[in-house]
Design a binder for these strands. Structure first.
Lengths: 214, 214, 214, 214
DNA sequence: GATTAAGCGAGACGGTACGTCAGGTCTTCAA
DNA sequence: TTGAAGACCTGACGTACCGTCTCGCTTAATC
């Protein structure tokens, strides 16, 4: 009885999910090869053995296509846990991870993710889940451990971290400014630690990288 | 006697500085019209009644040309002084100015400045001087007034402000996240004020927008 | 018992003749709208609410489809009879009719009929029957009347007319050369009349527009 | 003194005539290879090592390009003279030449020439001059010889021939109708000879292929 | 004052990518 | 099996910029 169908299939031949997956794999591959700027619809079509209309049918801009490719990356996670025994150590380790990521990636790609993906909470969440702690967000257990050690009040929030770290580090990376260990220590000591210790106000604004737009 | 000439003029007809100024004016105009992405050498050449070789002779990339245009903007300054009577008030006013700027400007242009210009200390300095307090940097007198009122230690530095404010605000703007008054208050209360009060460490790293790469 | 069936109906759903008629109507309509060159399978499919495979199943080329559409036009005829009282008058009237037709029609359509349709005797016949004397062929009664008046021998044939008139007039039309009354008179006086009067040779070759390939 | 310059060169780099010649050579070559329909801008560009804009700069349609290619063919002429000793023989020889041409050429190309070139007197003239008697026009010496032999009046014109022959033969060729020797004899005997013998009227209309639009 | 080397507007040029369109074929579901 | 819908590959379309080049002219500094 047809009233059971919430939404029936659209008419016509459905899109081939295999094509889609194959294409996005090529996009991922090409991002590594030629970078974001060098990526073109033409090139993707050639390498994927697909036609341009097939691409345009799915994504109308390069950005959309790249974002889809990133979202389609397998969510493996790196399983890393952060626990150095002190809040300061944990923070520095997180910043170190982020620094590594930034150092290795194409800045234009980072820029894309920044501009395209960060306004998309799902993508953000996906990135965090798929790649493990990226250093862009403060994992809840780090906060908990710090509270257990008495380094932070029980109700300390991650706002200061989430908001500040990603924005500053990425901005520095994009502008070829240094974000070496010395810099990171200074950020921890003169901004993050004071801010985290103080902040007891309930947060109404999610951090930039928290994946949830208020 | 030729040894007097430090560097002799190259032979042939010298470049016409008027052409240069006229072209850069067109660039500035076009940036407002079509944005950074939409700007092309072709378009500049057409609008300026110049030829492409004339442009390429001067700037080999679009970025170079745009940076030159921005640097060539007249340095008027807005002459505004910040003095509300309290550090918190001053900070909020500065953030308000920055918010206005971000709200009014083409995000692509901001992005350009971020990517192209901020790695250039001179350009950064120029922007600050030409447009007055932009809110991206903490004016020295604000610090001084706060110290006089006893709100901050004498040796308080602007690192926390310079580093955090520009990066977070611009990043939010680029990603269409809100940076309204509520957000700005939270940034002031839970990050800036605690950080400024604490930071007595001598700063080795200039803030992102301070115009001096360490 | 199935051996009784001379030809059994093919299995499966039979073709809907209404679809066919509707589609051809659309083709006729589109020929007027966008001309032969502008006609595409896509467009026909869209306008007819049909799918491309439905079209391709019936006609494998655009030409086939157009010919089918023309053949499907209702055979009304204009019932006009030619009888001015003199052979010269009759010929000029026929040429006048043809000239009108050529003047009113899309040259591309004429070209189509020329290239696509005229090699198809049935189509040719159909056109003549459906639209009455087109001027492209010499009606038998004109010849008869002329013979009765003694203007032509009894055995005069229509070869010279059929062969020459259509070809010259259409060619002129296609090439934007004039085929006005002066021209038509000259054609009659210096070609058609002398030829018709002389030709007593039994004809082995049907005229171009006679609809019968020898 | 500049007033001597009737028309000064247009500004900018002039088009390279070598490129043009090379491209048109490719067009000619491709016409033989893939025919008119199969000819594309893409293909010409590839084979000529030119870019599409370079082609479009010169000719905005395929037809224009092809006509230019034909016009650019070297005007060698075949030097053939028609003189069999009788008018009938001469006419049959001319028709034979035309039949050969039609048989060997791409019908679409003929169609192109018909539609594109024949409305262009210069092109028409060029074709006649470059390829010798094509059979599409009646050479003046054939008329003269016939008059000398007394087969035709001194003032006989070529209207009947020029007008009739090209149109009928080409039309038959385009429609895959036969134009074999039997047909050609019939055309000569029952149309051309009677018409030529009679026509003494001064001609106001140039024949289709005479290269002069009235 | 003549020479010379460069600046300059204009635009050709080979490329490359754009985004769209049509051609035919194939797949899905419903009739 | 038909039929509507539409995915799909192919390949051409005509346009836009790219960055380089070739023109003929103009403009200074040098000879």
């Amino acid at each position: 009885m047809s009233y059971l169908k919430e939404e029936s299939r659209p008419p016509g031949r459905p899109r081939d999910p295999h094509r889609e997956a194959a294409i996005l794999a090529v996009v991922t591959e090409l991002l590594a090869d030629v970078g974001y700027e060098g990526l073109t619809f033409e090139l993707v079509a050639r390498r994927a053995g697909a036609s341009k209309p097939t691409l345009y049918r799915r994504w109308s801009t390069k950005r959309d296509m790249v974002v889809a490719a990133i979202r389609a990356m397998p969510a493996t996670g790196n399983g890393r846990t952060i626990d150095t025994g002190s809040l300061r150590g944990d923070l520095l380790e997180l910043l170190g991870i982020l620094a590594e990521t930034l150092a290795s990636s194409d800045t234009a790609l980072v820029s894309t993710l920044l501009q395209a993906g960060l306004s998309d909470p799902e993508l953000c969440e996906h990135l965090e889940v798929s790649t493990g702690p990226s250093g862009a967000r403060l994992p809840a257990e780090v906060l908990r451990h710090a509270a257990e050690r008495g380094e932070l009040p029980r109700d300390a929030g991650s706002f200061a971290y989430d908001e500040v770290v990603g924005a500053t580090m990425v901005t520095r990376a994009l502008n070829a400014l240094p974000y070496d260990e010395g810099y990171r220590e200074q950020l921890v000591d003169s901004v993050l630690l004071p801010a985290l210790r103080t902040a007891a106000t309930p947060t109404h604004y999610a951090g930039i990288f928290s994946g949830r737009i208020h």
